[in-house]
Design a protein around this nucleic acid. Structure first.
Length: 936
DNA sequence: AGCCTCACG
DNA sequence: GACGTACGTGAGGCTT
């Protein structure tokens, strides 16, 4: 009996895994990890968990992982530019390529590659061979280039999105069926692979053309019939390009297979072999998870196979939904609450009908009391909105079926649990859940937050969304929100999701949160981040919740009047600008059109192009042009007012919450690389102040009658941190003596007596001081001061000469970044520095400047966070009723009864100045007034 | 979706 | 010898 016949008898379902695609995704999706010997292994780890999950989930009888062999293939012979602009793989990835192949062999899975062909070609060839033998094939990849292979017996599966890709999904992506994908790609090209395509034709146009003419050859033959003249000509001119592109994109399936299909048969796992490999890589958690000392795992199950096998397969071990329960009666609720108290720690999540926590209504609550044991407690449940039918208010017929427990009864039972000091509530971005519950009068304490844990541990090396972390740390794909609620116009609110579906989604979130907590919390200690998390981040959450809920009062009528005033002046300025352009109208808001007007119509000199080849028209350029022509100055005025009107006066009025009459920003605690907060919807950290027109907007931020706003800001906090961190004696003394720091700097650096420092010298010294904070460069300083680079360089040398400690600090900081991949602030926060070893000099220099800025900006962020954490209790203790409203990096804004203004200021100053004990004093300037503008 | 510009610290 | 750069954010408008 020949090998081929033998395999034909048992070959029913072949799984082909795009190994090369996975390596890159794993590498870029995971934070850096190294083995004890220093070898980077993050891609190996990611690949291993993905392979593990696939082996568990799939019902294949044959399986292979396919790799690219080398960069040179028949395609590069055809077209040397193919993938030519791809940078070489990152340094940290290179040693991982062989390790990933080792991983495949450790699982005893076939590992296929072939000189001269890409993995995609081999996948095509094996898919063809298997389907000829009557088998079905699942291609595990998310590479759109493979979509041309989809058919009756061939499906794709995207493991990241947990989504099967069949003909419908291909049509969705390309606008044509799988058999015409190649023709569409030939027309639209592919920027990522440097496939040229036909200029000016994108995926939409390509699909439309192929749909109309049937295929590429017919289209090219009949190109003369196309109505649009421009399109007709480009197609005629680029027919050869299109054919070349097609040959590049079309997968070859006609080579001799390096291994027969029969060699891909699934083999029983050899536990010792796998354990040895995992141990070598230091993947202890995987060894434990697989329980590798126990009897060997049976080979992959051989259940009947369909294209959707991956979807139908049971969830991976430990992620069963069997113990997710819907809570619809009080007895069940009480059982879960008892289990929560017993456990002492729960995963916790709320579902609502809005992303805006100030408008959201509580739709349901989910709790997880142990991994895999979770429940969903619906609070509001409405029938799905029937499409196209009118609502006759006859809800009874539709909503027949299980009803939630009345909301007040749920809250009465849950509130004691949520406030129970012996039960830790673990949420993911629990700030949001606390907001929603606070609106219902339900406090939540004590708490932990997996989003913040992830943020302090891994910084900006990856996102901190729940779905992303589940994938990363648990190898689990969460049910996506869009799967449950849809997207775009047809998106429904969570209260309309059928209960069983809602249970699976919501319970999973609580479950995953609890599991992530088990993984992340212990890392705090191991990675020396306990202090940062426990004293800076976690206690800040309730403070931020209160600030966001308080909001700020804005003077609506004043803003509207301002908006109208701006509007009139904008119209006048526009008319002036158009007149100055010889009466030729153009869109003043379009940099592209403006560039043409300035440098082509008016022919003004000094035009520069941005990196995309457009004319640069930034404020600095327009200022240079101002002496030459009246138009640029008018346009600057127009831009200023246009910005103020659209971003501030109009937007702020629209953001006033109807229920409170105030604007409520959202602070993000896990957004920045340095540890700062960020503010959005609306952003209240960038309200204008630098110009007179802009300050008018600040005047609209006011206190309630009988109250005042207090603004308290740290004076020169970042420069003080430089003096402290770098130990600069000259600056330390100046700060200790309470001197004008920029004047002192000018005097010391330029070698003139203090009395002789004029405003120009002081301005230059100030720019250098700022430059130091940003990781100074002659270019940057020169641009800032409008002086030649040589002069800027001399200033920097003089500065380093006078303050020699700064040079050592900069070198040490860069070295720290190179050895660890991060720098630490004086309070222990890690600021990650990706790119610090980049071999591109510019990229590296960028990372170096960011590294120098890290401890300074991050340290200042730590200090104000410490102040914010301590302030509420200090105010209460002093008998003050003031509320914190805003944080703007070095400034806090409070609202206080007028009568308490002075006493409140005293408390605020004491807390802020005492928030850290550095080798330089901290100084806070504070004032009270009816509006933010006057208080500042 | 990416770019440009600009508001803040 | 040329290149491309001050650090960190979020929002609005234009263009593709």
């Amino acid at each position: 009996m020949s090998a081929v016949t033998e395999s034909a008898a048992s070959l029913r379902h072949l799984v082909l895994i795009d190994g090369s695609g996975f390596i890159f995704r794993a590498f870029h999706g995971l934070p850096p990890m190294t083995r004890s010997d220093g070898t980077p292994v993050n891609a190996v780890y990611g690949f291993t968990t993905m392979l593990l999950k696939l082996l568990n989930d799939s019902a294949a009888d044959h399986i292979a992982v396919i790799f690219d062999s080398s960069r040179k293939t028949f395609r590069t012979d055809l077209y040397p530019e193919y993938k030519a602009h791809r940078p070489p793989p990152p340094e940290e990835l290179v040693p991982q390529f062989p390790l990933v192949r080792e991983a495949v062999r450790a699982f005893d899975v076939a590992c296929i590659e072939m000189e001269g062909f890409e993995a995609d070609d081999l996948i095509a060839a094996y898919a063809r061979a298997a389907t000829l033998q009557g088998a079905t094939v699942t291609i595990v990849s998310s590479d759109k280039d493979l979509m041309q292979l989809v058919g009756d017996r061939v499906a794709m599966f995207d493991p990241m999105k947990n989504r099967t890709i069949g003909p419908d999904e291909v049509f969705e992506k390309f606008g044509v069926g799988p058999e015409r994908v190649v023709d569409v790609q030939a027309l639209c090209g592919d920027a990522a692979d440097n496939v040229p395509g036909v200029p000016g034709i994108g995926i939409k146009t390509a699909a439309q053309l192929i749909g109309e003419y049937g295929d590429l050859e017919t289209l090219l033959a009949r190109a003369g019939e196309i109505k649009q003249p421009k399109r007709r000509q480009t197609l005629i001119d680029n027919a050869a390009m299109a054919r070349l592109s097609r040959d590049l994109v079309k997968l070859r399936d006609d080579m001799d297979l390096p291994e027969p299909v029969s060699a891909l048969a699934v083999r029983a796992l050899v536990p010792e072999r796998l354990a040895a490999f995992l141990a070598e890589q230091g993947f202890r958690s995987l060894i434990n998870r697989l329980d590798l000392k126990a009897p060997p795992r049976p080979p992959v199950a051989s259940v009947p196979v369909s294209a959707s096998a991956a979807e139908a397969a049971p969830a991976p071990a430990g992620f069963s939904r069997d113990q997710y329960e819907l809570v619809l009666d009080l007895d069940t609720l009480d059982r879960w609450i008892a289990a929560a108290i017993e456990a002492g720690i729960i995963g916790f999540d709320t579902e609502t009908d809005s992303l805006d926590s100030m408008r959201a209504r509580l739709v349901g609550v989910s709790l997880a009391v142990a991994p895999g044991r979770a429940c969903y407690i619906p609070v509001i449940h409405n029938p799905p909105a029937a499409q196209g039918s009118l609502d006759f208010g006859d809800a009874s017929a539709e909503s027949a079926g299980p009803k939630p427990i009345p909301a007040d009864q749920i809250l009465a039972r849950l509130a004691p649990l949520l406030a129970d000091p012996s039960v830790l509530k673990v949420g993911h971005n629990i700030k949001y859940d606390m907001q929603v519950l606070a609106s219902l009068g339900v406090p939540v304490t004590p708490i932990d937050d997996t989003m913040l844990l992830s943020y302090v541990l891994d910084g900006a090396s990856h996102g901190h969304g729940l779905d992303e972390l589940a994938q990363l740390h648990l190898g689990h794909t969460n049910i996506s929100f869009s799967e449950v609620c849809g997207t775009g116009k047809s998106q429904i609110t969570f209260d309309r999701v059928p209960l069983e579906k809602a249970r699976d989604y919501a319970a999973e979130d609580a479950d995953v949160t609890l599991r992530l907590h088990q993984l992340l919390k212990p890392r705090l200690l191991a990675e020396k981040m306990v202090e940062v998390y426990e004293t800076l981040e976690r206690p800040l959450i309730p403070v931020i919740v209160a600030m966001e809920r308080a909001g700020l009062k804005v003077d609506r009528a004043f803003l509207q009047a301002l908006s109208e005033d701006f509007g009139r002046r904008l119209a006048d300025l526009e008319a002036e600008v158009i007149a100055l352009n010889g009466g030729e109208a153009f869109n003043l808001a379009s940099p592209q059109q403006l560039g043409k007007v300035l440098f082509e119509t008016l022919n003004l000199p000094g035009g520069k192009k941005t990196k995309t080849g457009q004319w640069a028209t930034g404020a600095d350029i327009l200022e240079e042009l101002a002496p030459l022509h009246p138009l640029p100055a008018r346009l600057l005025d127009w831009r200023q007012l246009a910005k103020l009107k659209s971003t501030y006066t109009d937007a702020l009025v629209a953001q006033i919450n109807p229920a409170t009459g105030r604007v409520h920003t959202s602070f993000s605690l896990a957004a920045t690389t340095t540890g700062r907060l960020s503010s959005s919807d609306p952003n209240l950290q960038n309200i204008p102040i630098r110009t007179e027109e802009g300050r008018k907007i600040r005047r609209a931020f006011i206190a309630e009658p009988g109250f005042c706003l207090i603004s308290a800001d740290y004076s020169q906090i970042e420069l003080r941190l430089v003096a402290h961190v770098a130990g600069i004696e000259g600056l330390r003394t100046a700060f200790a003596e309470g001197r004008d720091i920029h004047a002192i700097t000018a005097s010391q650096v330029f070698g003139v007596p203090l009395e002789a420092v004029d405003s120009s010298l002081r301005r230059r010294a100030k720019a250098i001081n700022f430059g130091i904070i940003y990781g100074i460069s002659p270019f940057g300083l020169a641009a800032q001061l409008g002086i030649p680079q040589g002069e800027a360089k001399a200033y920097i040398e003089a500065y380093f000469g006078r303050y020699p400690e700064i040079r050592a600090f900069m070198e040490q900081t860069k070295e720290e970044a190179r050895t660890h991949g991060f720098v630490r602030t004086p309070f222990g926060r890690k600021v990650f520095t990706p790119g610090i070893k980049d071999k591109n000099g510019a990229a590296r220099a960028f990372a170096e400047r960011a590294a120098i800025n890290g401890p300074i900006q991050g340290g200042a962020a730590d200090i104000i966070k410490r102040a914010m954490v301590r302030l509420p209790a200090a105010l209460v203790e002093a008998g003050m009723t003031a509320r914190l409203l805003l944080q703007v990096h070095d400034e806090l804004v409070l609202e206080a009864p007028e009568a308490e203004a002075e006493a409140t200021i005293a408390v605020v100053r004491r807390v802020m100045e005492g928030a850290a004990c550095l080798s330089v004093p901290l100084l806070v300037e504070a004032a009270a007034a009816p509006s933010w503008d006057e208080a500042h």
